[in-house]
Amino acid sequence: MGSVRTNRYSIVSSEEDGMKLATMAVANGFGNGKSKVHTRQQCRSRFVKKDGHCNVQFINVGEKGQRYLADIFTTCVDIRWRWMLVIFCLAFVLSWLFFGCVFWLIALLHGDLDTDYKDDDDKSKVSKACVSEVNSFTAAFLFSIETQTTIGYGFRCVTDECPIAVFMVVFQSIVGCIIDAFIIGAVMAKMAKPKKRNETLVFSHNAVIAMRDGKLCLMWRVGNLRKSHLVEAHVRAQLLKSRITSEGEYIPLDQIDINVGFDSGIDRIFLVSPITIVHEIDEDSPLYDLSKQDIDNADFEIVVILEGMVEATAMTTQCRSSYLANEILWGHRYEPVLFEEKHYYKVDYSRFHKTYEVPNTPLCSARDLAEKKYILSNANSFCYENEVALTSKEEEEDSENGVPESTSTDSPPGIDLHNQASVPLEPRPLRRESEIGSRR
């Protein structure tokens, strides 16, 4: 089982795998120059863009038009607004034209077009017409509009002379109601789609790998820009990579689940303020055997998904993003964004995407760390350097704002901070800030 798991979770494809794949392509008759073999020097295209759209195009789909027309309502909801407006206008105009032609044909076959009612006051002739005051196609078209929109100006009306005319008036009224219901329903469904809710759900630009509770963890940050909550919010993550099976089958995008606390339930989050999602790199993680150097040379993509129900409509929305291997910062942490004021908490989104480097973060893999092949620094050293990194950030910001350097908390000259780390230190809580992250 261990060997199978290692093969499945191998992220960085070796040169031997690339040569094996190329040999397979030639042997199977696919070596026509169009096949692409992804190596370390040639990274694959992003499968999920940063804005959440999937970078996929469908080609050679059989009976595409028929399949889309069979699900016309979903098609109308998914198309762009400009095409929705075109369909909206065409549906009414074509129905008016169709029934206008029908009423014109009825008048033509009944002989109503030969009668001039402007110079004739004989009401008996008017009563013999199928539709009064309809003696041309324009008049028939206007009567069709008046019937379907129930305008009723009063000059044109159907008589009991022709039952077919009466039937067409009733039929057009029913068709008009159906068109109204369909168009209004599609427009309302399109307006109520929770897709735009994703514009106020954000992911951090970069993911980070750092120590948390004595273990290497992959972390990324999510935030909600609205005050309205995302009900039943939960997160998922998958690692996408290519691999070759033991039988020699090439899988271009193998999807591997990344555990973010599904078993323990901590994948469900209360997204009021930005939260750091934590994936513990343990023996079940696809990143277990990867060191910093392996991450730098790897070719994979981590897709992160945030799902929840919109509070206003109770409709489920899904926000997506992805991180390539070069977008994962090893040995970094996110800057705090949640600050405790006197009577409330304040979230500073200008710090949302910012990170700071944490010294002495192990550069080895989580496996080597678990097997004690890498000796961690003293816990006080880690905490102290973590505090120094934050303090230096604040000093830089104070210097930019014009604060005198004498007010900063610099260490005395001639003292090495790293050498001082081995000395037991008193706890130094942050002056006014605390970061709330997901705790395992």
Rank of each mutant, 00 (worst) to 15 (best):
G2Y: 06
S3Y: 03
S3I: 02
R8W: 03
Y9N: 15
I11E: 15
V12C: 15
V12P: 13
E15G: 11
E16M: 05
E16Q: 08
E16N: 05
G18T: 05
K20W: 02
K20I: 07
A22C: 04
A25C: 09
A27T: 14
A27L: 05
G29V: 06
N32K: 08
N32I: 11
G33H: 06
K36W: 04
H38V: 13
Q42C: 10
Q42M: 07
S45C: 06
V48C: 11
D51F: 03
G52S: 03
V56T: 15
K64C: 13
Q66C: 15
R67N: 12
A70F: 05
A70M: 07
A70E: 04
T74L: 07
T75V: 05
T75K: 14
D78Q: 15
W81Q: 03
M84D: 05
M84N: 05
V86Q: 15
V93E: 02
L94I: 07
S95I: 14
S95W: 04
W96T: 08
W96K: 00
W96F: 04
F99S: 02
C101V: 09
C101S: 08
W104G: 04
I106Y: 00
A107P: 01
L109P: 02
L109E: 14
L109D: 14
H110P: 01
H110S: 03
H110G: 02
D112Y: 01
L113Q: 02
L113I: 09
D116P: 14
Y117D: 00
Y117M: 00
K118A: 03
D121Y: 14
S124T: 12
S124G: 14
K125C: 07
K125S: 14
S127A: 15
K128D: 04
E133I: 03
N135H: 15
N135F: 08
A140I: 00
E146F: 02
Q148E: 04
Q148W: 02
T149S: 12
T149G: 09
I151L: 09
G152A: 03
Y153Q: 11
R156K: 08
I164E: 13
V166K: 04
M168T: 10
V169W: 08
Q172W: 00
S173T: 15
I178N: 03
I179C: 10
F182E: 03
I183T: 13
G185T: 09
M191C: 10
K195Y: 06
K196N: 15
K196Q: 09
R197N: 13
L201N: 10
L201P: 04
S204L: 01
A207K: 01
V208T: 09
I209T: 02
A210P: 00
R212N: 14
L216T: 01
C217G: 02
V222H: 01
L225I: 14
E232W: 12
E232V: 10
A233M: 09
H234T: 11
H234E: 13
R236K: 10
R236P: 01
A237S: 09
A237E: 01
A237N: 00
Q238F: 14
Q238P: 00
L239F: 12
S242I: 08
S242G: 14
I244N: 15
S246H: 08
S246P: 14
I251V: 07
I251D: 13
D254C: 09
D254K: 11
Q255F: 07
D257V: 07
G261K: 11
F262Q: 04
G265E: 08
G265V: 10
I269K: 11
F270L: 12
L271G: 04
V272K: 08
S273I: 03
I277V: 08
V278T: 06
I281Y: 00
S285V: 01
L287W: 00
Y288E: 00
S291G: 09
Q293T: 12
D294P: 00
D296P: 07
N297D: 09
F300V: 02
F300C: 02
V303G: 02
V304P: 02
G308L: 12
V310M: 11
A312L: 09
T313P: 11
M315K: 08
T317E: 13
C319L: 09
L324M: 07
A325C: 07
A325S: 09
E327R: 00
L329Y: 05
W330M: 00
W330N: 02
G331D: 02
Y334H: 05
Y334R: 01
P336E: 14
E341Q: 12
E341H: 08
K342H: 03
Y345K: 13
Y345A: 07
K346M: 05
S350D: 11
S350N: 10
R351Q: 15
R351Y: 13
H353Q: 06
K354D: 14
T355H: 03
E357H: 03
E357Q: 08
V358T: 06
P359E: 15
N360T: 13
T361F: 14
T361K: 01
P362F: 01
P362T: 00
C364R: 02
C364D: 02
C364Y: 03
L369C: 09
A370M: 07
K372I: 03
Y374N: 10
L376T: 14
N378R: 14
N380Q: 05
N380E: 13
N380H: 09
N380P: 09
N380M: 06
F382V: 14
E387H: 01
A389E: 14
A389S: 05
S392D: 13
E396S: 11
E396P: 12
E397F: 07
S399V: 11
E400H: 10
P404R: 07
P404D: 12
E405S: 13
S408P: 13
T409C: 12
G414N: 11
I415R: 06
H418C: 09
N419H: 10
A421V: 11
P424L: 03
P424D: 15
L425G: 12
L425T: 14
E426T: 13
P427W: 03
E433L: 11
